[in-house]
Design a protein around this nucleic acid. Structure first.
Length: 761
DNA sequence: GTAGGGTTAG
């Protein structure tokens, strides 16, 4: 076409376009004022109704983040096109104003406009960012109906959206239909499966990549590493790491932080130190994840020095790093230091998140700081941090440990409200908590209401019934477990054997002991042997128990010998007791319990010289029995009661009640030589009396505070001693109370002065 | 115009 031919055509171009052409240079200019000027010129020339011009104007305003102006332009167009909307949607998405972006889209849709292949990727990106799976799915439908779902960009963003929403199944369907699959998409899929713990898929995709000529890069390798790590294959993760290194992929900060958890779990401290050296050389110690993972590795390997040194050196006050530090400290028993650091972090107004709170709560609950754990759980909510599916099973053991039923119940309520009660971890922790608080019926209800149960849930229930001495129930639950597709493990058998021991079911005990290895291929561990020794010993078959110990394929530990010694006390067998005690003196020379048990056995036989000699031996070693300690919960507050402690605010009332009970006992002819007024306990300083002291306090306190007698008090951690039992028995018959007493992990139920189970009483 | 990886809590 010649110039001569073109010129008449140009003359026919409408005036509006001429206006646009005049202003076009300003529209692509670099300042907002020029855009405003262009806008004015467009309005003057009447070009504002032109879709293309308006769209450019919208884009230009958006470019300067003037979204309101852009939207005004959009709204002024009488008949807007997809393109006009998409300019604004694109800009809003880019500015991360996702909700507004979706809002503009819905306006576009209500104009009857169908999104095109340019808008769709933006929309999917928005849904991915907002995890708006349902909206995304609907837009996916729109793209299918309009036949746009075969577009590579649409597919790519759709795939990403499903991945971000954690919908691996949907993502996989899109992936399988994708026309172009590159290393990026494959790695993304691989990493997605790794996060979900689908190791098989991870490995399959990785090998298929190689087969189909897609060269895996460092991201793919990192995904494989994290897959092994997440699925608990720690050794394998380390091996892959070494293989990757050999193949010439230099580990980066992501590689290091992916493999370090596995190094820690395999307790390969030296290898961890090697990585530490590499990290320093490569200058990766600036990365927060690397530091957290490094602290975590030292913590898991028991290297407290490593944790503290690294934390002090890096001086990085970042939430993740601090969380790893808290966990590392409490994992190694330094819970006081952890609490101290946590306080410091709070003072420094650090941004503590749900992991921070959960870490310190779990640290407390695992290190005997149960009351602190409950207090922190409350404080966390006051601080506006919402407990999640990890927090709840971390704090529930604290409720169980101190039989704080009220706290446990309200946590259960919380879990139900936030829809977490079906979670395996939460459910199992609830079952355990209720059992430890004496409410085995609630454990049963929680269990029955769970839509699906894993082995941990079953084991919690088995252990609960076992704790309550209900062997028949344990066996019947075990039968139900066997009928499921789940296979019982060594923990299931521990509950079975322990409950058989409690009620003297020797034959059943042997049956399960052999069933464990013969039918299920589970090798008996130390705890199974202790259960068997206990079972045989209680049944009076001490020699058989001792023979079993001698036949053990590995060295018996203190629990096994302790079980034998305890049985010897029940059967008054001095010879075997001396053998067992001798082993225990070697294994745990610091444990005063062994001396006391042995001396009791001597005393029962009237061997007073031996009694004296054992007592002297104990004293010469400077050993003392731990003071008794109990907890009791009254109206949602947990009270700790320590032997010899008079600091309780109601000590006078308690003493008064004690006197009253003592008087009643005298009148009704109960063991008149027993005296359990507090002052007498202290004056006499008799060990037996001291042991019973705190429990009496708890029982009496419970009576005082529950005048209507409705709540059954669960008293934890009772030390076995005759004096205290008599008190509990007496109170139970005298006051007509049902009293539950928990002796470490076993329950005794008193009604009308009779204990329903156990020969201790 | 789309698009990939890591740490710390049970």
């Amino acid at each position: 076409m010649t110039t001569k031919q073109v010129l008449p055509l140009i003359a026919q171009i409408p005036q509006s376009i001429v206006g646009f052409l005049e202003s076009s240079s300003s529209l692509w200019s670099s300042s907002l004022s020029k855009t405003t000027q262009a806008h004015a010129r467009i309005l003057k020339s009447g070009a504002q109704n032109d879709g293309y011009i308006s769209a450019k104007l919208i884009a230009s305003y958006s470019n300067y983040s003037c979204f309101d102006d852009a939207d005004l332009v959009l709204q002024s167009i009488p008949d807007p096109s997809v393109y006009s909307f998409s300019s604004l949607i694109y800009a809003l998405t880019k500015a991360k104003l996702f909700s507004q972006s979706i809002g503009v889209f819905s306006r576009m849709f209500s104009h009857g406009l169908i999104p095109d292949t340019h808008v769709l990727p933006n929309l999917f990106k928005v849904c991915a960012e907002l995890s708006a799976f349902n909206v995304g799915k609907q837009i996916h439908c729109v793209s299918c109906v309009s036949g746009l779902d075969m577009d590579a960009f649409v597919q790519g963003s759709l795939f990403h959206m499903y991945m971000r929403c954690g919908r691996m199944g949907d993502a996989r369907k899109v992936f399988d239909r994708m026309s172009e699959k590159g290393v990026v998409t494959c790695s993304a899929l691989l990493c997605g499966y790794a996060r979900k713990g689908c190791l098989e898929e991870v490995v399959r995709i990785f090998s298929e990549m190689e087969k189909s000529g897609i060269e895996p890069n460092i991201v793919s390798w990192n995904g494989v590493l994290s897959g092994f790590n997440r699925s608990g294959f720690h050794r394998e993760a380390v091996i892959m790491f070494q293989k990757m290194h050999r193949m010439g992929f230099g580990p980066d900060q992501v590689t290091v932080s992916s493999v370090l958890p596995s190094v820690g779990d395999s307790e390969m401290l030296n290898f961890g130190k090697l990585i530490h050296g590499y990290v320093i050389k490569q200058g990766l110690l600036k990365d927060k994840c690397v530091i957290s993972a490094m602290i975590d590795m030292y913590g898991k390997s028991g290297n407290v020095y490593g944790i503290i040194k690294l934390f002090d050196e890096v001086e990085m006050m970042e939430t993740g790093v601090c969380n790893a530090y808290i966990t590392g400290l409490s994992r190694n028993g330094l819970v006081d230091k952890a609490l101290e650091m946590f306080e410091l972090f709070k003072e420094q107004k650090m941004d503590l998140n749900v992991v921070s709170w959960t870490s310190i709560i779990a640290g407390c609950a695992q290190n005997g700081k149960d009351i602190e754990a409950l207090e922190l759980f409350r404080e966390m909510q006051v601080a506006g941090v919402k407990p999640n599916r990890v927090t709840i099973p971390s704090m529930l053991p604290a409720c169980g440990n101190i039989a704080a039923l009220g706290h446990g119940r309200s946590t259960h309520g919380f879990a139900v409200r936030v829809h977490l009660s079906d979670d395996f971890h939460v459910g199992s922790a609830l079952i355990d908590m209720y059992a430890k608080c004496g409410r085995i019926n609630m454990s049963q209800i929680v269990f029955s209401m769970m839509p699906t149960k894993n082995l941990v849930c079953w084991n919690s229930l088995l252990n609960g019934y076992s704790m309550h001495g209900k062997a028949k129930e344990v066996m019947s639950i075990f039968e139900s477990l066997v009928r499921t597709r789940l296979k019982p493990d060594f923990i299931s058998f521990t509950s079975l054997l322990s409950s058989c021991g409690q009620v003297g079911l020797t034959d059943e005990g042997w049956k399960y002991f052999s069933m464990m290895s013969e039918e299920y291929g589970i090798k008996p561990r130390l705890e199974h042997y202790s259960c068997m020794v206990n079972l045989l010993g209680r049944a009076g078959k001490l020699q058989e128990a001792y023979d079993l110990i001698k036949e053990m394929p590995f060295e018996p530990d203190s629990c096994v010998w302790g079980a034998l010694l305890n049985s010897c006390r029940l059967q008054n067998n001095v010879d075997l007791a001396e053998i067992a005690a001798d082993k225990l003196f070697n294994l745990e020379p610091e444990n005063p319990g062994t001396y006391v048990l042995l001396s009791n056995i001597y005393a029962a036989k009237g061997m007073w010289t031996e009694v004296d000699s054992i007592r002297n031996k104990m004293e010469s070693q400077g050993l003392k029995k731990n003071p008794g300690c109990s907890w009791i919960q009254v109206k949602n507050k947990v009270y700790t009661l320590l032997a010899g402690d008079k600091s309780h605010p109601q000590i006078d009332q308690i003493t008064e009640k004690m006197d009253e009970i003592r008087e009643e006992m005298r009148k009704s002819g109960h063991r008149p030589n027993l005296d359990f007024a507090l002052q007498d306990v202290e004056e006499q300083e008799q060990e037996q009396m001291l042991w019973g002291h705190s429990e009496k306090l708890a029982v009496v306190f419970g009576l005082l505070n529950t005048p209507d007698g409705t709540p059954l008090q669960v008293i934890k951690n009772l030390r076995i001693c005759g004096d205290c039992h008599s008190v509990i028995k007496f109170i139970s018959s005298y006051a007509g109370r049902e009293i539950f007493v928990r002796d470490t992990n076993r329950f005794h139920h008193f009604k009308d002065g009779i204990c329903s189970c156990g020969d201790f009483w």
